Simulated assay, not measured.
Amino acid sequence: MPQPHGFAYEQRDGGTTVVITHHGRPVTILRGSRAARFLQEVAAGDPQLVMARWTGNYKRGNERFAREHPRNSRSL
C-alpha cells in the first residue's frame, strides 16, 4: 500500500487551531484539546500518516472487494 502524501497542516491562533489540508484544500479543522493531541502525534510519528488517519483519508484494504460488490456495479 502506498504511503499517503499531499497532506499539510497549519497552526493558527497560537496553536489552539490546526487546519489540515490535502493538496491545498482544507479537509479538517481541529480546535482546543484535539489540536493539542494532534500536534503531539505529529511530533512523535510520521506526519503524513498521522494526518491521513485524523482526516479519515487512508486506505483500509477493502477497496478491491468493495469495487466488486453488486451495489457498486455501474449497470443500474
Rank of each mutant, 00 (worst) to 15 (best):
L30C: 06
H22I: 02
R31Y: 07
H22K: 03
L49F: 09
A8L: 07
P47Q: 04
F7R: 00
V50Y: 06
E41M: 10
L49S: 10
N57G: 00
T21E: 08
H23T: 10
P4I: 06
G61N: 02
T16K: 14
G61V: 00
Y9H: 09
T21A: 14
G56H: 09
R64W: 10
N72Y: 12
L30T: 04
F65T: 11
L30H: 06
L49I: 13
P2T: 13
N72L: 07
R60L: 14
V42A: 05
L39S: 04
L39H: 04
G56N: 07
E10A: 14
R71T: 08
G61E: 03
Y58P: 03
E68G: 06
M51Y: 05
F65D: 15
L39G: 03
Q3R: 15
I20H: 04
G24Y: 03
G14S: 10
L49G: 14
H69I: 04
R31D: 12
G56V: 00
A8N: 01
G14E: 13
R53V: 02
Q48L: 06
T55D: 07
K59E: 14
Q48R: 02
P70R: 09
V18L: 01
T17K: 15
T28C: 10
T21I: 01
S75P: 04
H69Q: 12
P4G: 00
V50F: 04
R53Y: 08
H22F: 14
E41I: 03
P4L: 03
G56A: 01
G61R: 09
E41P: 00
L49C: 11
Y9W: 14
Q48W: 10
E10P: 09
E68Q: 13
E41N: 09
S75A: 12
D46W: 00
T28S: 11
R64P: 00
F65N: 05
G6W: 01
G61S: 02
G56K: 08
N57S: 14
N62K: 06
P26L: 00
A52S: 09
A66P: 01
L76Y: 07
E10W: 02
G45V: 04
T55F: 03
R37N: 06
E63R: 00
P4K: 01
D13Q: 15
